[in-house]
């Protein structure tokens, strides 16, 4: 998966969210429509074009104390509205490592 750290141009091909890591503990969080952060992907604000993505990212970057390293990540939205990660990297960030033993919280 191409690292989003190399994400320079904002160009989205489908529904996306802004994700980051919470500053005080580093856990994975998503930007919500209520201008806050949530660890629950289902609460993430969905953007569907570049302008929306830019606006959500700019707002997220401005909240430097809340979370760090925000970037746009692809998601899939099911017919029932359920949001799923759009690639393996984001799947691992959401559900944890894929290696068994070390995965327990």
């Amino acid at each position: 998966m191409t690292s989003p750290l190399e994400q320079k141009k904002i160009k989205i091909a489908g529904p996306s969210v802004v994700t980051a890591n919470r500053t005080w503990d580093g856990i994975v969080v998503y930007r919500t429509a209520a201008k806050s952060w949530s660890a629950d992907l289902s609460e993430a604000a969905i953007v569907r074009n570049s302008d929306e993505a830019k606006a959500l990212l700019a707002e997220s970057v401005a909240d430097d104390v809340g979370a760090i390293g925000p970037y746009i990540a692809p998601v899939q939205v099911g017919a029932d509205g359920k949001i799923e990660p759009g690639n393996l990297r984001e799947q691992i960030r959401l559900t944890g490592v894929t290696i068994g033993q070390s995965a327990q919280a």
Partner: peptide
């Protein structure tokens, strides 16, 4: 970084 602290996928 000067104290060995990175940000990785899930956490620091």
């Amino acid at each position: 970084l000067q104290n060995g602290v990175y940000l990785q996928l899930h956490a620091y």
